[in-house]
Design a protein around this nucleic acid. Structure first.
Lengths: 358, 358
DNA sequence: TTGTAGGCGTTATCAT
DNA sequence: ATGATAACGCCTACAA
């Protein structure tokens, strides 16, 4: 008559009850062909009677050295996964690839400073492969993943040794947009970008700060915009950095930028979300788009088409981005090697938010 | 001169190299105050030199018996988490609560049949608490979670012993909507619902099928609609079941329902997404909303306000739903008891898609 | 402050 | 077909 507290049954408990060894019980669950149907039946029954929930997943992971999960690291709060339009489309693509492979998708929190998950968080995450999305180039999380020796695929990140990668021609897309505006006769521009560095910077960005940008996407889009303009002789373009890709931020940026006599006739934004804010700012100031000011975005999220006016923007294949990342991740999961990066094309989508400068 | 293959270093390796015990190395990572700063420093240095990535998360989980993760089970594909508007708002709320607690969010794939994760998937998932959302009442996944003894919080599910729960008054909301339409003088109705059972059913739903519905949400909204109508003497209301909450499905449903002389003058939908499809169907058929037919939705997702025409709908606090679920989950994580269910209110939002029946 | 020893629950490799 | 036994890598009293 034991007085033990009701401890959860384990493989051992069941083995003892049935009178077989642990190995056999384990086999009953994982290799039905390794034991007689009758014995297996008896084991499973006793297990049920004992309330044994089946092999513990953590213990199994320890023994098998894999956990049937793919992790996703982002540079933002967890909730951005579901609220940021562009990000959630990428995740949709990733998820649709992972779906049907019976793997869980582990979302790692990125911390409020946009710097990506803390190394400690990475160290604790249980996954067989990790997908990193738009982290600062020098994010500690990237090093932490490498330290753990986990295979990784990066999206919108610089080249990293031994890492699969899907990339988009951000600079080229940005140039397309700038060229479009130049063709329309614009000569006075402004640029609105999201974070250049994960430090919450918000406001006009100095050339020095531009040079120090650690977010590859911001940097490339910005460089694309500015270099195309410079090639056409347009210099001294004001750049406004928003601390995130949220329209409230660009709205107030827009209100400043679009005020004054020498206000720009065209605003280049690093994302559609930022462009929406600028559109709102123009409305706030009584400026007509595109008559008074042209606005272009980047991404071509679904809302771009329904904006007021419909937004001219650079389309990038967001779903494909996620999908490819997923495929690369699955390949790495199977022990495959990284291989060359997947390159995705961008296109300019001309809508009604841009027009000839009259 | 060993010829070992380069095996990954473990706590032991480091301990050996430094000349201390495993426990001390472990403490260096987890309890800095348990050893001298100097020794700790030396340990960490050697670890770095050896390429030791720090304590293995799986082994740690096995020993500590928790894994710093909260799991989310849904009745759909993983990708629905990011593409289904209502679901992603709930997840946004959940994520914003979990954010800052340094826990990962584990999304479990639900399988294509909407029946929820397979028991086997549940058995392998590594998490300390699980949140279940809108699964069939008899989903095997629910039993699997209980079998594992994991604490659980359910959203939009029937009462379950020993389980935290957040619930919404779906039936009441539905009654509100039906009453609204009755007041406007409507007498001929149709109802469009999403899945009643996880079997892909799509088409007119018989009373028998209604009675057998296993999705609590579908059942309650449907019951709310029909009982309110019945109380007003309106019977024989056709119900169309769509196999998912997607507008393409309800669009074709709508085209059938809105055809014929005795077509309904009002359509009650189980979700906004379904209502959008019906709106489209009306357009397809050249019917004006609300002049020819009134349409109401359920949820009040952001798009409802911008629909053409703006959609009358039952608002439920989606973000709060997720947030509360998150709070309950965190409480369970801390060893708290389930407590009474959190009840959330719904309200009718009258917009332009409903009007007097003339 | 540091070390010892036992445990966490499985899987995997050989024998038998 | 089954069973011993050794990993898997770490945590944590408790002892020293």
């Amino acid at each position: 008559m034991d007085v033990d507290r009701p401890r959860k049954p384990t493989l051992d408990t069941v083995a003892g009850a049935v009178g077989v060894s642990r190995a056999t019980v384990s086999n009953a669950y994982n290799r039905p062909d390794q034991l007689s149907a009758a014995l297996r039946e008896r084991i499973l029954e006793t297990a049920a009677a004992l309330g044994y929930p089946g092999p513990d997943p953590v213990a199994r992971s320890l023994a098998t050295r894999h956990s049937a999960a793919v992790a996703f690291m982002l540079g933002q709060q967890l909730s951005a996964s579901f609220s940021d339009p562009a990000l959630s489309i990428v995740l949709d693509g990733l998820a649709s690839t992972v779906d049907g492979h019976d793997h869980c998708l582990v979302l790692m929190p990125g911390g409020a400073d946009r710097g990506g998950p803390r190394p400690q968080t990475v160290a604790r995450a249980q996954a067989d492969v990790v997908v990193a999305y738009s982290l600062p180039d020098d994010a500690p999380a990237l090093a932490a993943v490498r330290a753990r020796g986990l295979p990784m695929v990066v999206i919108d990140q610089p080249v990293l040794p031994d890492t699969a990668r899907v990339e988009v021609d951000d600079a080229g897309g940005a140039r397309l947009a700038a060229a479009h505006l130049l063709e329309l006769g614009h000569r006075r521009f402004a640029v609105v970008t999201f974070s250049l560095r994960p430090d919450g910077g918000n406001g006009p960005a100095s050339p020095a700060r531009l040079a120090e940008a650690t977010f590859r996407v911001s940097r490339d889009r910005l460089t694309g915009y500015l270099s195309e303009l410079r090639a056409a002789g347009v210099v001294d373009v004001p750049v406004w950095e928003c601390s995130g890709s949220r329209r409230e931020l660009s709205r107030s940026a827009g209100r400043t930028l679009l005020t004054g006599d020498d206000r720009p006739t065209a605003v280049l934004c690093a994302s559609d979300e930022l462009a929406f804010g600028v559109l709102q700012a123009a409305r706030d100031l009584g400026l007509a788009v595109p008559e008074d000011v042209s606005v272009v975005g980047f991404d071509d999220v679904p809302a771009a088409e329904h904006a007021e006016p419909p937004l001219t923007t650079v389309r990038q294949p967001l779903v494909d981005k996620g999908r490819h990342a997923g495929e690369l991740a699955l390949r790495l999961l199977d022990g495959g090697r990284p291989g060359p990066p997947t390159r995705l094309a961008v296109t300019l989508v001309e809508r009604a938010s841009t027009a000839l400068h009259t």
